[in-house]
């Protein structure tokens, strides 16, 4: 109880101090009168053909920043997500190899049938979100997050047995995820490799031609702007996120009995 009181007073002090410092102007005007100049630069450049050595060829500024201007952040954000799944696989290693003898009952037949139709809608909407990421709000991770609702709900509604029946195995999911991540990283360094091969200047994460480099991904496809790498990165990220979620949730939703069996005994190693 004493601990609680101490913490509460401390946190009230923190909140008050933050509020007071904000009142003094730590954040500037509230609400801000205008956006910051760097944001103006981004908005000006993102789809400005007049400055075509500094454009991202995507009308969607957020996706352009996420995958082009600050693409490295997003690559490593993907690595963090990959690392979290890797961590889950590490601490659950062995569980994926054991046969799950869970008896699937699932929810009622009405929910099952509805879910089957809704799965189609969800996957379609998710694919559209990912494929139009460079035109309208959306993108690879957004699409992947929407799409992953389908496998999650399928597991919960039909039971884990469904994936066994449909032959969606651990190995397949792992292959899909890592192959798409590999292609993702390949498309970020593709122009660099091409540049090294043809003795021209190329950068890691290069998208469109730059002041010193003439290499470029196509800026348009068919009749819409493509955003160069943005399209490919969105697609690969979409696949990677969907399969990654499916992978980690098939593991997390394994039956308790199987997991406990895997945890018997002490581990040797220092």
């Amino acid at each position: 109880m004493l601990r609680d009181i101490i913490f509460v007073t401390l946190l009230i002090i923190i909140a008050l101090a933050l509020s007071y410092l904000t009142y003094l102007g730590g954040l500037g005007d509230l609400p801000p009168q205008d956006i910051r100049l760097i944001a103006r630069s981004y908005l000006n450049l993102t789809y400005n053909q007049g400055v075509n050595w500094l454009w991202a060829a995507s009308p969607e500024a957020v996706t352009a920043i996420v995958w082009d201007y600050r693409g490295l952040d997003t690559l490593f954000e993907t690595v963090v997500f990959y690392g979290a799944i890797l961590a889950a696989l590490t601490v659950f290693r062995g569980v994926s190899k054991l046969p799950d003898r869970i008896v699937s009952v699932g929810l009622s037949v009405v929910v099952k049938r509805t879910m089957a139709i809704v799965t189609l809608a969800i996957l379609t909407v998710a694919a559209s979100t990912a494929l139009h990421g460079h035109l309208t709000p959306g993108g690879g991770f957004q699409g992947g997050a929407i799409a992953s609702v389908a496998p999650l709900l399928l597991i919960v509604v039909f039971g884990k047995q469904l994936f066994v029946e449909k032959k969606v195995s651990y190995n397949k999911l792992l292959t899909l995820r890592n192959a798409s991540l590999g292609l993702l990283s390949l498309s970020t360094v593709a122009l660099l490799i091409y540049g090294l091969a043809t003795n021209e200047i190329g950068y890691i994460f290069q998208n469109q031609a730059k002041a010193l480099s003439t290499l470029s991904y196509p800026s348009h496809m068919l009749d819409v702007p493509l955003g160069g790498t943005l399209f490919f990165l969105n697609v690969f990220e979409f696949l990677a996120v969907t399969s990654g979620f499916t992978l980690v949730f098939t593991l997390l939703l394994s039956s308790e009995e199987v997991i406990l069996k895997e945890f018997e005994g002490e581990e040797y190693g220092y």
Binding site: L107, S108, V110, V111, T114, M115, I117, V118, A121, V125
Partner: peptide
């Protein structure tokens, strides 16, 4: 699309 999906999901959710 929202309307279509909602029609399916609302009923299924309440029932479940």
């Amino acid at each position: 699309v929202i309307a279509f999906v909602e029609l399916l999901l609302a009923g299924a959710g309440s029932h479940a």
